[in-house]
């Protein structure tokens, strides 16, 4: 019986034998199901959404679950059961005892924070110029930034490594005054350069949208242009600044190539968290359980950041797109 027939005033006059129920009885359950979905497509969409979400969640969360499983297994066990036999969290403590894992994490967090700070500061100045000023060659300059960001960073590794480590003159012109290799500078400078273009693009879009009147008002009230940028334009572009900052932070924190190769292997030599995970592997032993535990711990800062700032990121990314 369809909803229409039941609610209709004339429904009573059919003496209970209406066509709808006859049809339903003649059809197989699958046919009825299909009919229902054709009439109410939103039901189909809901089911598809749940299904897709399930697939996505499984593929992204299962590896984490597997890491947890590995961390629960006793040392040396390679046959990992689908459900851990025992819950033994000692591996998570052991990680910090066996190697200075906290220092490794600090190193990576230090890189991420410093680069983010640099990028937001310099990117803001660039974003201000590109978003709010008119000057000759603005578009070509912005375009060349875009081209730079397409450049694979790995191609620049060898020249930078030689300049940082072997004191080879940069561009054949000057030698760096100090050896950067093994210091935070060797990681922070190249990574700042590589993450800068995206941040500049995001900030340019946002800073360009702040009405001129507000900047003028701030300048008349007593700020310089730079002062207006940091006191008025930046706070009003908070979603954009947050997006640029978080994307930079995550990129640098999870970066492997430069942070691994530009530093030594020990925590004291500013090695990143990757080295901390590798440190559980010696010439003769591999502590997979500790490596898994270390990996999980290393994820925590980024996970917290994303959970805390997710709505900022989403509003930041979509706002920029919608307001064009």
């Amino acid at each position: 019986m369809s909803i229409d027939a039941r609610n209709h005033e004339d429904a009573e006059t059919f003496d209970g034998s209406d066509d709808g129920s006859d049809d339903d009885e003649n059809k197989s359950p699958v046919q009825r199901w299909a009919d229902d979905w054709i009439r109410n497509p939103e039901k189909a969409y809901a089911v598809m959404l749940v299904f897709l979400g399930g697939v996505l969640l499984t593929t992204s969360l299962f590896p984490l679950y597997w890491l947890f499983n590995v961390a629960m297994a006793p040392p040396g066990q390679t046959d990992i059961p689908i459900v851990p036999a025992t819950i033994d969290l000692s591996a998570f403590v052991q990680v910090f005892v066996q190697v200075p894992f906290a220092r490794f994490m600090f190193n990576s967090l230090f890189y991420a924070f410093t680069v983010t700070l640099f990028v937001l500061l310099i990117g803001s100045l660039a974003g201000y110029a590109f978003g709010r000023l008119e000057f000759r060659g603005k578009t070509p300059l912005l375009f060349s930034l875009l081209v730079l960001s397409f450049f694979p960073p790995a191609t620049l590794f060898i020249p930078l490594f030689r300049a940082f480590n072997q004191q080879v003159p940069m561009l054949g012109l000057f030698t760096l005054p100090v050896e950067l290799y093994g210091t935070p500078g060797a990681v922070i400078t190249p990574l700042s350069a590589f993450t800068m273009p995206l941040a500049i693009f995001i900030l340019t879009t946002f800073y360009g949208q702040i009405p001129d009147g507000l900047e003028d008002a701030a300048r008349v009230e007593g700020t310089t242009r730079i002062g207006a940028l940091f006191r008025v334009i930046m706070p009003l572009s908070a979603p954009g600044v947050a997006t640029a900052g978080i994307l930079t932070f995550i990129t640098v924190y999870t970066e492997f190539f430069f942070s691994f190769l530009m530093t030594g292997n020990s925590a004291a030599e500013w090695a990143p968290v990757v080295d901390g995970v590798i440190a559980f592997q010696t010439q003769y032993t591999v502590r997979y359980d500790l490596q898994a535990a270390a990996s999980l711990i290393a994820i925590v800062p980024v996970a917290i950041l994303v959970v805390v700032a997710q709505d900022k990121i989403i509003s930041g990314l979509t706002q920029g797109a919608l307001k064009e």
Binding site: P211, G213, L214, V220, G222, T224, L236
Partner: peptide, 30 residues
């Protein structure tokens, strides 16, 4: 001279209050 050193104050057509500050902070900005 930059605007801040001219001893002027300005009221704008689009009013240009700082949207992220309350009335007190807006008035006391300078």
């Amino acid at each position: 001279l930059p605007p801040k050193d001219r001893g002027i104050a300005m009221v704008f057509q689009n009013i240009a209050l700082f949207p992220h500050m309350d009335v007190y902070d807006n008035i006391s900005f300078g």
